[in-house]
Write a protein that binds this DNA or RNA. Structure first.
Length: 420
DNA sequence: TCTGGGGTCCTAGGACCC
DNA sequence: TCTGGGGTCCTAGGACCC
C-alpha cells in the first residue's frame, strides 16, 4: 500500500513576507491579490482578527488600520523563489515528489520506519533553511493525506503533523465525523450543497456513501474521492509536470481604460508573457485568443465582454507572431464607448515545438526567429524581466496594475537585496 | 472609490462517419 | 409504411483546485 504525505507552507505568502521582516513576528500580516483587490493570504494573527479569505480589501481596510495589520501587495518574484527553495528541501525527505502548487507538495514515504520523527525533522529542516513553517499530513491516498494535513493544522495538539494510521479505525471514524464534507479535497461548494441534500454532511458520511450512488448522482471524480477516503489510492503521484494545454496571461487595470491604443499595449504585454511561458515549456500554440471586458461590479456602466480567437497558419511561440495575432484579434473584438477593466491573452492548441505540421502553401517561417527568441529569453533571465521587449508593449502605460504595498524582491533582484 | 489570475477534468449533446 | 448500431470528435457549460 502506498503512503503519501502532503506538505504545505502555512499561510504561505504571508509567511514569505515575514521571513525578511522579523519586526513583524507575532503581528498580523495580510497579502493582497493583483491590483490590491482581494485578500489572498493571512497570517494566523490576521485570521484571529476575523479577517476572512478572498474578501475585497476595501471591506477590511478599516480593520487593518485599527489593528495595525501589515498589508502587502503580492510579490510573485519573492513567492516563486521561496517556493522553489522550499520544494527543494521537502524533496530530500521523500522517496518521490510531486510539486502540486506554489505551496503544496506530495511526497511518498513508503518504507520509512519512524514517520513521526521523519515528519518532525522535515518541518524543522524547512523552517531552518527557508524560514517557512509547514504542516505534514500522512495517509494511504492523496485525499487522505490532504485531509490529514487539515487535521494537523486545525488541532494544535498535532503540532503540525498527523497520520491516519496513528489512530485506531474507530478513532479515525470519530475524527472524520467531525470534519465537514466540504473540507474534503475535490468537494467544492456546489457538490457539498447537493451532498447535504442527500444527508451527507461529514467526511465520514461521504466515506460510507455508496460509490455507485455517488457515480450516478455526480461523476467518476466524486466516486474516486469516495474510494480515496476509504484508503484505496486512485490518484497517482505525478512526479513530472505535464506540459500546459492552455496558457493564460491577463490582468485587471488599476483604472478604467477607454481607448484602443492603451488596450493594445496591454494586450501586447500579455501576449509576450504568454509566449514566454510557452517557450519555457518548449511548446508551440496554434490558437491565440484575446479577451477584454468591462468592470462587472459597476452595474451603472454599460457591460461588454469580448472574446476573439485568432488561428495562426504555423503553430508558433514567437513573441512577435503571437502579438500580431493578438492585436488582430483585439481589432475585431474592440468596441469603442466602453470602460474596460481587464484584458487578457489565451494560447490554445498547444503542442511540442519539435513536432509541427507545416502548411503546404504558406511560406515557412524564418528559422532564425527561434534563435532571436532564445537570445531575448536569455537576456531577460540574466538582466531582469522586461530588459528586452516589443515596442508595442510600451506605447502606452495607462494600464498598469495597482501594487502600492509591494515588498522588495529580496531574493531575486540585486538592487533589492536586504542590507544587514 | 476600491472586487485576482491562473489552471484541470468531466458530461451532455450535436455533427458526422461507416 | 417501415428507418440500426457502433463509433469519434467537438463544443459549451459546469464543477473543482490553488
Amino acid at each position: 500500500m502506498p503512503l503519501f504525505a502532503l506538505v504545505d507552507g502555512n499561510s504561505f505568502y504571508a509567511s514569505c513576507e515575514g521571513v525578511f521582516r522579523p519586526d513583524l513576528i507575532g503581528k498580523p500580516i495580510v497579502v493582497l491579490s493583483n491590483n490590491d483587490g482581494c485578500v489572498v493570504a493571512r497570517s494566523a494573527e490576521a485570521k484571529a482578527l476575523g479577517i476572512k479569505g478572498f474578501v475585497p480589501f476595501f471591506e477590511i481596510r478599516h480593520l487593518c488600520q485599527k489593528h495595525d495589520v501589515a498589508v502587502f501587495s503580492s510579490n510573485y518574484a519573492l513567492y516563486g523563489d521561496m517556493s522553489q527553495r522550499m520544494m527543494q528541501v521537502i524533496g530530500r525527505w521523500g522517496i518521490d515528489q510531486e510539486v502540486y502548487s506554489v505551496d503544496e507538495s506530495f511526497i511518498t514515504l513508503d518504507g520509512i520506519p519512524d514517520l513521526r520523527e521523519h515528519a518532525t525533522r522535515l518541518r524543522a529542516d524547512v523552517l531552518q533553511r527557508v524560514g517557512i513553517p509547514t504542516c505534514v499530513g500522512i495517509g494511504p491516498s492523496k485525499t487522505l493525506a490532504k485531509l490529514a494535513n487539515h487535521v494537523g493544522k486545525v488541532y494544535p495538539r498535532a503540532q503540525g503533523v498527523f497520520a491516519w494510521h496513528w489512530l485506531t479505525p474507530e478513532w479515525q471514524d470519530k475524527l472524520m465525523a467531525r470534519i465537514a464534507v466540504g473540507e474534503v479535497w475535490g468537494i467544492g461548494r456546489r457538490i457539498a450543497e447537493r451532498l447535504a441534500a442527500m444527508g451527507i454532511h461529514s467526511a465520514l458520511d461521504l466515506k460510507h456513501a455508496d460509490p455507485r450512488d455517488i457515480k450516478r448522482q455526480f461523476n467518476v471524480v466524486v466516486e474516486r474521492t469516495v474510494a480515496e477516503l476509504n484508503g484505496i489510492s486512485c490518484l497517482a503521484l505525478e512526479d513530472v509536470a505535464p506540459a500546459k494545454q492552455q496558457i493564460i496571461a491577463s490582468r485587471s487595470f488599476a483604472e478604467l481604460v477607454h481607448d484602443f491604443d492603451t488596450l493594445a499595449s496591454a494586450i501586447s504585454h500579455h501576449a509576450c508573457r504568454a509566449a514566454e511561458k510557452l517557450r519555457r515549456q518548449h511548446s508551440h500554440a496554434r490558437l491565440v485568443a484575446v479577451s477584454i471586458r468591462t468592470n462587472r461590479f459597476r452595474q451603472q456602466d454599460a457591460q461588454y465582454a469580448g472574446w476573439e480567437v485568432y488561428p495562426l497558419i504555423h503553430p508558433s511561440s514567437d513573441s512577435a507572431t503571437i502579438t500580431a495575432a493578438a492585436l488582430a484579434g483585439l481589432r475585431r473584438v474592440y468596441r469603442p464607448g466602453y470602460s474596460y477593466k481587464k484584458a487578457g491573452v489565451v494560447l490554445m492548441e498547444i503542442g511540442p515545438a519539435d513536432r509541427v505540421q507545416p502548411d503546404l502553401f504558406a511560406p515557412t517561417p524564418d528559422p532564425r526567429r527561434g534563435r532571436v527568441m532564445a537570445v531575448m529569453d536569455h537576456i531577460n533571465r540574466e538582466y531582469g524581466r522586461g530588459t528586452l521587449r516589443l515596442a508595442s508593449e510600451k506605447l502606452h502605460s495607462g494600464w498598469a496594475m495597482r501594487q502600492e504595498k509591494r515588498s522588495p524582491r529580496w531574493t531575486t533582484c540585486w538592487r533589492e537585496l536586504p542590507v544587514v
